[in-house]
Design a protein around this nucleic acid. Structure first.
Lengths: 213, 213
DNA sequence: GACTGTTCAGTGATAAAGTCACACAGAACC
DNA sequence: GGTTCTGTGTGACTTTATCACTGAACAGTC
């Protein structure tokens, strides 16, 4: 049964029709939800799990743009839906994900008949735009060592003690080269802040960086 | 009289009301349309001219995110309008600009009553998202010398022979440091591709870069 | 004209990050 | 066991960023 906050805003009649018109699906880790160039068949609502959205540029390098999780809307799909152009990025399931797809016709009807639905869509768009603007600034101006430590700290803050991730994947997260990550991690290991093993990073003593402005 | 393609999509009655509800304004070069933190009072439609949107990060550095020109919609404003949060970026008029502001109430009514208006808004959003994704990739992975030459070539392609711009402004365009631009421009001058003077860059012999993959 | 303050540009030194090339270790498969 | 593949470590080098400073070009004042 689909649980998504944007559905809660609908009136009874619309909600009933919507629930009847969508089907929820489960996707296992590693599954590619869509890839660059593909066309979009409907608007996915993420009910739970975690999906990363990344793009590969002309240079052949990849970078993770943002993640979608519980209660998110796949903003990228809206653009594809409206303009008819293919996706520019690809979406890869990280943790087992449940999602509902709103087909085009139903989406149009919801946009037409529910101001609350429209508001939800626009808010989602606004947040995504904000995220991307912040990412641009981060990529352009922040130091790699800081970005890496912040990324690891965010994971530590979620309670994760041991990460299963390769240096290459981490490089894609931050939009840099694998060697850069390897060297920075080695340095953190020397300082006793992480433990390294093949495909694993153990978060031991990450400390807040002091005054590195 | 406001000329904007999104108004053409409206039916006679809505268009009449819309034209009555908006007022067009002119802004001179250098004028700041909005700056970071400010709140948004309506949706600007750009009728003509050129506006650059740039943000300043925690690092204190600035980067130009995109430009708005004739027939554009200020997508950033929609997010602010819907979420009530302040702008994250600032908009600066480059060439004398004419714009019409659609007030909040009218915007809501148009979203409610015109599927074509909604489509226009969503398309505009999709394009902006695409632009930003491409920018992320460019900033993360492309070489500065190539980006600079491409930027100059784009101006040359518009027919501009002499640019009035400082090295610092150009650095903000590309999200780098002024010194980097100075050095790269000097190199281009040595190769006879540009002429340099205080506050001016003359585009003489820019040639396509050959196989710099 | 000379004097002053401001903005813009040039450049050396150094540090950080990206690129290239390759060695080697651990895991997986026969 | 051996072979293959993937992931990691590292040296050498290039590009970009940062810091510190110099001097040139311009505007305003006397």
């Amino acid at each position: 049964m689909a649980r998504h906050s944007i559905l809660d805003t609908l009136n009874d009649s619309l909600r009933k029709d919507t629930l009847a018109g969508i089907s929820t699906m489960r996707f296992p880790p590693g599954q590619v939800l869509f890839s660059a160039g593909e066309h979009c068949r409907g608007l996915p609502l993420v009910l739970g799990g975690s999906i990363k959205v990344q793009m590969t540029g002309l240079s052949g390098h990849s970078i993770v743009l943002y993640r979608m999780g519980s209660d998110d809307i796949c903003t990228l799909s809206i653009g594809c839906l409206m303009t008819g152009r293919g996706y520019r990025a690809e979406a890869i399931v990280e943790e087992e994900t449940e999602a509902a797809i709103i087909p085009r016709g139903l989406f149009d009807r919801l946009m037409d008949q529910s101001a609350e639905f429209r508001l939800g869509i626009m808010e989602s768009y606004g947040r995504r735009l904000d995220d991307l603007m912040l990412l641009v600034e981060e990529v352009a101006f922040h130091r790699m060592d800081e970005r890496l430590e912040e990324w690891l700290q965010a994971r530590a803050a979620q309670g994760q003690r041991t990460l299963t991730i390769t240096h290459q994947e981490l490089a894609t997260e931050l939009g840099t080269a694998r060697e850069v990550i390897s060297r920075l991690l080695k340095e953190l290991e020397r300082r006793g802040q992480v433990g390294l093993a093949r495909g694993k990073i153990e978060l031991t003593g990450l400390k807040k960086r002091s005054a590195t402005a």
